[in-house]
């Protein structure tokens, strides 16, 4: 379980997050939704400690993460897998080397064990036999899948995904979403996914947090969204006329 307590964050000229308090539960795919530029990535980076919070606390299963020193943070980071928006695979390394990298940093596994684990992870995301390709030889969806394989390489307790579907076609998006959902349940992880993709919300959003203008505006399950009266949320979710029509039909 990850708790975000009264977190604020500002950059030199603007306030991006204002007093956000939210709880993300274990074994669930928690979704953070909001317009592009609303601060989803900043929130995620504050949670994993890539950005320092200005106020408030980030609590991992009872441990106040943002107050830890570098060494103790590292022991929690070992439990974190993160999927970045563009994949963020290391260009100069092959697919296999990319997946082995976190094992090199955190463990004392032998070369054999590392390769075996890498193959297992690749198989899990249906990317077997791509071990010796370089990231620029892969398509967008393949990159994301390799990035997921890298994120789960160390069997993390926490999985973070920043816009896992951005730049992907709807069908590939669903494959990635399903993969995230399955992995979350399989390994009982606490998963947080940033997205602005409504298909994902409906497919995998067991808990949805809506952020607008840096504030938490709404939270609930994907089913509850259909019945919500929150105007800002409705404007965001049911942006096109077809969706508006669906919503009205449900209501009546």
């Amino acid at each position: 379980m990850i708790e975000v307590v009264h977190v604020s964050k500002h950059f030199s000229n603007e306030t991006v997050l204002k007093d956000i308090t939210v709880t993300f539960e274990r074994g669930k795919t928690n979704l953070v939704i909001g317009q592009s530029g609303s601060g989803k990535t900043v929130l995620l980076k504050c949670i994993v400690g890539l950005l320092e919070v200005d106020e408030g606390d980030i609590i991992y299963d009872g441990v106040v993460f943002n107050k830890l020193n570098f060494k103790d943070k590292k022991s929690i980071r070992k439990e974190i897998g993160m999927l970045f928006q563009g994949g963020a695979l290391f260009d100069s390394l092959t697919v296999e080397e990319n997946i082995i990298y976190p094992m090199d940093m955190f463990t004392r596994m032998t070369t054999e064990e590392k390769k075996e684990r890498a193959n297992f992870c690749l198989k899990r995301v249906n990317m077997e036999n791509s071990n010796h390709l370089y990231p620029d030889e892969l398509s967008g969806g393949m990159k994301k899948r390799v990035a997921i394989a890298r994120a789960i390489a160390l069997n993390p307790k926490y999985l973070f995904c920043d816009e896992p579907n951005s730049g992907l076609d709807p069908k590939t998006s669903i494959v990635i979403d399903k993969l995230i959902l399955e992995l979350t349940e399989e390994f009982n992880m606490t998963t947080i996914v940033n997205t602005h993709d409504m298909n994902s919300v409906m497919e995998i959003g067991s808990k949805v947090v809506f952020i607008a203008n840096g504030m938490k505006c709404w939270e609930g399950t994907n089913r509850e969204i259909l019945h919500s009266d929150n105007q800002v949320l409705n404007d965001f979710i049911f942006a096109n006329s077809l969706a508006k029509h669906v919503k009205n039909t449900i209501k009546n």
């Binding site: 980076k45 994993v48 890539l50 943070k73 590292k74 980071r77 070992k78 974190i80 993160m82 970045f84 928006q85 563009g86 963020a88 695979l89 290391f90 260009d91 990298y101 976190p102 940093m105 955190f106």
Partner: peptide, 17 residues
């Protein structure tokens, strides 16, 4: 710069590097 904007530097930091 490219590593920064494609978040490869963030990925390294996450791995405790």
């Amino acid at each position: 710069g490219t590593m920064r904007v494609t978040e490869q530097i963030d990925a390294l930091e996450i791995m405790g590097v």
